[in-house]
Design a protein around this nucleic acid. Structure first.
Lengths: 233, 233
DNA sequence: ACATTAAACGGACCTCGGTCCGGATTCGTA
DNA sequence: TACGAATCCGGACCGAGGTCCGTTTAATGT
């Protein structure tokens, strides 16, 4: 099964708003362990490819990661790369998989304030800080791994993050439209925005974190004036 | 001069946070009128190309707009398309130009509540509703015209919208980090998100509008608890 | 009208992501 | 060990975006 196919199959196409999700269910666990159900040569080539891709990135930056380059650097045919990872995005995503798993483990079952145990608002703050940190660390890779416009919101990691935010927001703001609010918050953490602000605008990371904190404060403080907010449907 | 080059030259690369912008200065006016300083054949071909592109979109959808297809449909060489519009994004963007101008005119100098004269918060609400309306109308085209990750935040229309929001937010929330808040709000209005929510998730447009209203309410209501928010730098 | 020059033209050409399918390899089974 | 079937491999192939450069053409000055 293609990585991309698997990724798309993990979560339902679009979470029903009222569907109750318990945290453990959210876990985006890839093929358990390290690809056990792959044929020997397939597993070998997969490892080779990831290795070659990482090497190419280190040498020529993410832009230098051509599918053909990766293939030949791994002594493998081009078709193999696509069969294993589906497309370029899939390959780059696979490189981020470890980090993503660690991160998910951290906010799903790690210690507070990121993991369960802290107040929802605290967890929100911690989530944003962690995301911003990752974004800064892996910026090049995350940018290169950006999916096309169609998939951008369907990619499993994003769905998991979104679901997590929805959960926290529902706890903090029972009357809000958590779905939409979560999308809004995710937007702030988008690698592309982070890249623009830090690299293209020279904004210090500290300001981004302060901005996140401010955003969380504003969003989670009550809405004293105006019509009482209610999530339709 | 290439369309893309022109577009990039209109506004400074990244607006200084404290730079004071009066609304009229923001106007993203393209080459006055209808491309006056273009050679006759160039202007003719430009018109042909836009026409051909529009026709192709009407017939085969945005996906069918191949640069070669447009070129040959306009009886023009492929190189001409690129010289005139820089790249595919430039061509699609040009197709949206009229709508964009009208919209900018509306919120820069049109009647309230979108234009000046209404309260900032009212104008924010109206801005979002208008953007959502446009997004729904021109969804296919706006999606296809989505720039690559690097340019996404540097494209003039986006900059103008952002500056506008910054202006309104500064009026409504003198102590907030309007720059970042504006980016957050813009994220909610992104065509890609709108597409995902309406087409892929089947969310009714009314809910998106309600969500915008809620978002504006939350963001613009004071921040009663927590540390007083202050824009660093 | 004519020479000059800057701009525009056009299509061959390149790169790269993605597809396809005949042939090779691995794995379960006897 | 032998064998069949499922899986995987590899590289030829395709389409589309983008570049290049020799040629043509429109504007300008004389």
């Amino acid at each position: 099964m293609l990585y991309a196919e698997f990724m798309s199959a993990v979560l339902p196409p679009c979470p029903e708003p009222e569907e109750s999700l318990t945290e453990p269910e959210l876990l985006h666990l890839g093929p358990a362990g390290d690809e056990p159900c792959l044929r020997a040569d397939a597993a070998r080539n997969r490892a080779r490819l990831l290795d070659a891709a990482a090497r190419l990135i280190a040498e020529h930056g993410a832009a230098g990661v051509t599918m053909e380059a990766v293939a030949s650097a791994a002594n493998v045919g081009k078709g193999t790369v696509f069969r294993r990872f589906g497309d370029r995005t899939g390959l780059l995503t696979a490189l981020l998989d470890h980090s993503e798993r660690n991160f998910q483990a951290a906010f799903l079952s790690g210690p507070p304030p990121l993991g369960p145990g802290a107040e929802p608002v605290e967890r929100l703050r911690a989530f944003g800080v962690a995301m911003l940190g990752r974004a800064v660390d892996e910026l090049d890779l995350q940018l290169a791994a950006e999916p096309g416009p169609d998939r951008r919101y369907s990619v499993p990691p994003r769905r998991v993050h979104h679901s997590h935010l929805v959960l926290l927001l529902r706890q903090a703001l029972p009357d809000a439209d958590a779905e939409l609010l979560a999308h809004t918050l995710m937007g702030y953490l988008s690698p592309v925005l982070v890249h623009h602000l830090t690299r293209q605008c020279g904004m210090p990371a500290a300001r981004l974190e302060a901005g996140w904190s401010e955003l969380v404060d504003r969003v989670t403080s009550g809405v004293p004036t105006g019509t009482p907010v209610r999530a339709p449907r």
